[in-house]
Design a protein around this nucleic acid. Sequence first.
DNA 1: AAACACCCCTGCGGGC
DNA 2: TGCCCGCAGGGGTGTT
Length: 273
Amino acid sequence: MPELPEVEVIRQGIAPMLIARTIIRVKSSGLALRLPIPRTKIERYIKDQPITAVRRRAKYLLVNMANNAALIIHLGMTGRLGMFRADQSPAPHDHLCCLLDNGLELRFNDTRRFGSIQVLPPDSDEGHFFAALGPEPLGDDFTVDYMQNRAGKRRQPLKNFLMNSHVVAGIGNIYANEITFAASISPTRTVNKISRREWQTIITSTREILQKAIAAGGSTISDFINAGGKPGYFQLQLRVYGRAGEPCPICGTAIEKTSMAGRATFWCHHCQH
DNA sequence: AAACACCCCTGCGGGC
DNA sequence: TGCCCGCAGGGGTGTT
């Protein structure tokens, strides 16, 4: 369940090991992820090209190549990236293995195959690929004006709105729960009834929680070799997610669990309005 | 247009 | 003990 902070930590971990390296051989499981693995495009545009950058947009990782092609990786629910020595035996659910010119192998492992691997050919329009995505929550475009405009007269509950990647990118179920709790606003509140002041609180809480999670992950993942995507991330204390029936860390009231848009929702009825 | 339901997939844990 | 079922949730598509 990597969300934005986890993807960012993985990016920071693998970037130094990938930049200036070249993928010289690729193996895949033959099983499709959410999309089929584009073997032909990988061979044509990705292989034998020096890697120039490893970036992130929302929960997508972008591996940029010297020919201006890009490999776009999404981890879905259970996706992991790890660096291994080439002689280490592959694990179950390894779906793509990229051998580098230094003998290390980048492996994408995904039990449930909700992830995806895509290729942007050289000089294709990256902006177009991400056109439907809302702003980065840690970027300058995530503002009170923007959120209030997007909310408009919509009567969608706040939590569902925060999880809508077309509104703001990269916030999944776990952090949506934590954000509404930190902002002391009910996840069920309809967004047309949220004040400017409350939007400011939501934005501030979002940034704080995501940045804290990134910092916690960054401090716990020190060695990506053999890590295999070992979660270094959930060191961040989750205050409501997964804590149904436990006392609210602020007031002691039992945390409630409900379902919203088919997703587990945890909140404190006393603290969040 | 907005807000849903549904689907893809596997592993795990609870209940019986 | 073993089996069945519900649940976990990102993101795309389809429906009302």
